[in-house]
Computed example of a mutant assay.
Amino acid sequence: MAFTEVKKSKVVSERTILALIPQRFREKTSEALEKTELEEIRLRVNRPPEFIYQWGHQFMKSDPFTKSEASFVMNQLSQHSVYAFEEELRNGFLTLSGGHRVGLGGETVVEKGQVKTLKHVCSFNIRIARQMNGVAERFLPELFQEQWRNVLIVGPPQSGKTTLLRDIARTASYGHPTKKIPPRKVAIADERSEIAAAFEGIPQHDLGPRTDVLDRCPKAEGMMMLVRAMSPDILIVDEIGHERDKASLKEAMNAGVAVICSAHGRSMEDMQERQLLRTALGRPLFDRILLLNENKHGTLIVQRSVQK
């Protein structure tokens, strides 16, 4: 992409975010958006806006965000996704053009034990989407050895799991001639729109030319739909955890598809307790485990060395 196109895309992306921000906060927010370390913009009723950077956080020196300003933000958000607004409220987040996500906090409306929607929304987490290419580079010699290995990426929130999955998908789709990695068909089951950051079905991140995305579909069902319909070489999925997710992973692997996925956790012990590492017969489910920490550093573990 040419420099002028990148610059134009950045300007449009910033305008999308600034359109949500009440007027009196826009100048400071615009200044914060110029910093590549910015990760989140937090708006909470009765609190000043907060900027979350890679190096820490900073509250804006201003009067608190008000309830009427929360209503303004909600009105702006509804214009970005009118047709799916109620469904997105039920999920607790909305995805904007450019891949930015807005998490919502408020009062849930529950019917028959299920969350139907949110009301009295009073807190917003605007997560800035910045694609980071090349973060998977140092792990490629272990993740790809003549073929892509089955890999589980484990880490706490904001340790870089999704960013790494996204870069692996892009690399696998384009291929990597220098490392003798051929391009492959990639399928992504993106239940929470975090990997592709799809807006109206179109991925907002560059995931490569041979990547197909199933957006907002429950993971277990989505994985099977992709295996059966899209014949992928590699299946990528974020935040596995349930037994039904594990069953779908196993079925995909048995069909000859390489699976690369992530899960919340801080240690191998966490994964052992959740029984995500092995099959019912005690065999390793994954070839590689990649443990990430809060500083986004990774440690690779070969699964065959893990004890039952």
Rank of each mutant, 00 (worst) to 15 (best):
E40A: 00
H205Q: 06
E27L: 12
Q204P: 12
N46Q: 12
L214N: 04
R127N: 08
R26V: 11
V302G: 02
Y53V: 04
E146P: 00
E87K: 14
V302W: 04
T211H: 13
M230P: 04
E239H: 01
V186S: 06
S231C: 14
T66I: 07
I260Y: 11
Q131P: 10
P49R: 01
R216N: 10
G56H: 12
Q307V: 10
M74S: 06
D63R: 12
Q204H: 06
G98N: 02
E251F: 09
K296R: 15
K119H: 09
R192I: 07
A189F: 01
E146V: 04
G282Q: 06
R170V: 07
F144Q: 06
D233T: 06
A136I: 11
A136R: 00
V302H: 12
S71W: 02
I128T: 06
P218Y: 09
H80P: 00
S231Y: 05
A172R: 05
T95E: 03
L165D: 10
A197T: 11
N125H: 00
L235P: 07
G98Q: 05
M224G: 03
D245V: 01
A129D: 01
E69H: 04
A252Q: 07
F93I: 12
E37N: 12
N254Q: 14
E142C: 08
H205N: 14
M132E: 12
F85W: 14
G113A: 11
P182F: 08
N75L: 03
V227A: 13
S248W: 02
V302I: 05
P203N: 09
E14T: 05
R216G: 11
P49I: 05
A280H: 07
V186T: 04
I168H: 06
R15Q: 15
F3H: 15
A2K: 15
E239L: 06
E273R: 15
P64A: 03
D233W: 00
F139Y: 15
N91H: 14
S97K: 14
H264M: 06
M60E: 12
P141E: 09
E86D: 14
Y83E: 14
L164G: 04
G282C: 08
F3C: 01
L118T: 03
K179T: 01
D238T: 01
V306R: 00
H57E: 15
E39H: 03
N295T: 09
H297Y: 10
I52P: 01
V213D: 03
M225G: 08
L277C: 00
D245N: 12
A229F: 00
I195A: 02
R24C: 08
P157V: 04
M230I: 14
A32K: 13
G155C: 12
R15M: 09
G265F: 07
T16W: 01
D233I: 01
R170T: 04
K7D: 07
R24G: 07
M271G: 02
V115C: 12
A32G: 04
G113Y: 08
K246Y: 09
D233R: 02
G298Q: 02
A263E: 03
K179V: 01
S231T: 15
H100K: 05
M253T: 10
I260F: 11
V121F: 00
F124R: 07
V45E: 13
R184L: 09
E86H: 11
R138S: 15
Q79S: 05
T163R: 11
S97W: 03
D233K: 13
V186L: 06
R130K: 15
